[in-house]
């Protein structure tokens, strides 16, 4: 879709075929990607039809019985539906409102660091957690927050406070998830913004300096506005993934005591659908999630178009 719009912008008058003949090479280069998208992103969509069936793995799509919206109805009537929806929405909102801006701030701060060695060291340090899997991070946090042996609780005890079983606390667990997300991804996510900042014409800064703008003003009036388009793009992509809290992430932190606070669609699908071989049910829930996600994407895209003239569709 992105490709389509950028091509169309330049070639409004030509028909598609004419433009293909004109830019054979370009189209040829785009072909593998195009095939990939069709094959791996669109063809499997047909399989979503099993959400409306009682799918029997031995009978296949052809032989299974159509049951309409049975699985959706079952899901909506499920006692925990509201809770799961709420958890997903809250964690998604935290992701957009709290986790999302951190890499931007980090990138801007990093850009102001003058000591190259120090900058390199910090960059490396903040990238590293990205390469750890969520399972490991879950283990690290569980250890750090342990009521008996964890560093945090040892500190609390030294200050004379009671130790808290954080991993079992419904009050704390969402915050812990947010902190873990920030810690894991902030460095990695800032790469995009750093690259965008590196592309800013130094002449702009020089001009601003001559005009008497201090560093903070330059940050505010040059850096930020120039990277605003990329921020909006990233934000829209993020909003499109609003419902994708991630199975590995949540499951690494979830236990029988905090489940009520962080059970989301992804974990629910895994437990109720895949673990119990209820493929139709799992697909129905997944489909519902995707529909909500795409609706959000379109709404936010329209809003963004109106307010900042930036859009991705």
């Amino acid at each position: 879709m992105r490709k389509g719009s950028s091509v169309a912008a330049g070639l409004k008058k030509d028909s598609l075929w004419q433009s293909i003949c004109k830019h054979k090479g370009l189209y040829l280069m785009a072909l593998p990607g195009f095939i990939w998208f069709v094959l791996f992103k669109y063809v499997p969509l047909v399989g979503a039809v099993i959400a409306f069936m009682d799918y029997d793995i031995y009978k296949g799509i052809g032989g299974s019985k159509f049951v309409g919206f049975k699985h959706f109805a079952h899901f909506f009537q499920f006692p925990e539906f509201g809770q799961i929806f709420r958890n997903t929405a809250i964690l998604g909102a935290y992701d957009v409102l709290i986790v999302f801006p951190i890499p931007i701030i980090l990138a801007i701060l990093m850009n102001e660091v003058r000591n190259a060695k120090y900058k390199k060291a910090v960059q490396t340090a903040v990238y590293v957690p990205h390469f750890l899997s969520w399972v490991i991070i879950g283990g690290i946090f569980t250890t750090l927050l342990s009521p008996n042996t964890g560093v945090i609780n040892n500190l609390r005890q030294m200050l004379g406070l009671d130790s808290i079983y954080y991993m079992a606390s419904e009050k704390h667990i969402r915050g812990i998830l947010v902190i873990a997300s920030i810690w894991k991804e902030m460095g990695w996510s800032s790469i995009v913004y750093l690259a965008a900042i590196a592309g800013i014409d130094p002449a702009l800064y020089e001009a601003a300096e001559i005009d008497g703008a201090n560093r903070f003003k330059r940050m505010l009036h040059i850096t930020l506005p120039t990277i605003l388009p990329i921020i909006m793009t990233m934000l829209l992509l993020k909003v499109g993934n609003f419902m994708e809290i991630g199975f590995e992430k949540t499951n690494s932190f979830m236990n029988s005591m905090n489940q009520e606070s962080i059970d989301v669609f992804d974990t629910f699908v895994y437990r109720y659908g895949l673990q119990n071989l209820q493929y139709s049910y799992a697909t129905a829930v997944g489909l519902f999630k995707s529909v909500v996600g795409i609706t959000l994407l379109f709404v936010s895209n329209a809003l963004s178009k109106k307010t900042t003239q930036q859009s991705i569709i």
Partner: peptide, 16 residues
Amino acid sequence: KKKHVARIMALGLALT
């Protein structure tokens, strides 16, 4: 502006 858009596209794509 167009250059910007292209750059954003590329970055976005790389990121996905």
